[in-house]
């Protein structure tokens, strides 16, 4: 564990807490893409298949349970909670994400570290996470102004993988045989997808104005 990875995990945890806070405090999920939440639930379920077979550390296990539990709870809330579900922007959140799921799974069948059930699903989860934010970014552009908590949620979600990139650089420089090309390339693509969001987020912060993404 290094400071970059810890910062990344904490930033990821903060993004989840901010989203839970938004939904719990405002009893509303307006501006949140259910599709992105469902994609993230798939990402965690596919990535943490080794949850019970490979014990790495208490921290690792606890964080996996937190990410799986929170993503499933948010999907449940947005679908079935009688108050929250009314504020879901159903007609704006129309990204056909099964194309993404199919493409990522096909890529994982071709490109993986080892051809085993667990490894293919692990590579699938890495590719899927890289594009999982797309429905959310599309929804932000369509829904015009973005409330603060939603903007902060997306910001922290994008920042966490940027910390992971620093972690991979650090591990590459300090550990002799460290190569994680699948994670690194996907992580770069994932962070690049947030580039324009980060730009408009910085502008809104600098001008102390509402976050506005151009339609």
């Amino acid at each position: 564990m290094n400071i970059f990875r810890l910062a990344g995990d904490m930033t990821h945890l903060i993004s989840v807490l901010v989203l839970l806070l938004k939904i719990y405090a405002t009893k509303s999920c307006s501006g949140i893409s259910l599709k992105t939440q469902e994609l993230y639930a798939m990402v965690f379920l596919a990535r943490y298949l080794d949850l019970f077979s490979d014990f790495i550390s208490l921290y690792n296990t606890v964080m996996k349970l937190v990410f799986i539990g929170s993503s499933l709870a948010i999907v449940w809330c947005m679908r079935y909670h009688r108050v929250v579900r009314r504020s879901y922007d159903r007609e704006l959140d129309t990204f056909r994400y099964w194309i993404l799921v199919g493409a990522c799974f096909t890529l994982a069948l071709v490109l993986h570290e080892k051809f085993s059930f667990q490894e293919v699903f692990w590579a699938f989860s890495i590719y899927l996470e890289a594009v999982a934010i797309l429905p959310q970014l599309v929804l932000l552009q369509r829904s015009g102004n973005v409330d603060n908590l939603t903007g902060q949620y997306v910001f922290f979600l994008g920042a966490y993988r940027a910390f992971y990139i620093l972690n991979w650089i650090y591990r590459y420089l300090t550990e002799p045989r460290f190569t994680r090309w699948i994670s690194c390339v996907s992580g770069l693509v994932q962070t690049a997808l947030y580039a324009d969001f980060f730009y408009y987020y910085f502008i809104s912060w600098k001008n102390n104005a509402k976050l506005q993404l151009p339609a």
Binding site: D9, D54, F67, K114, E119, Y164, S183
Partner: peptide, 10 residues
């Protein structure tokens, strides 16, 4: 452990 893919990251 070496045959296992060491996915020690989240």
């Amino acid at each position: 452990k070496d045959h296992e893919s060491d996915h020690d990251e989240l």
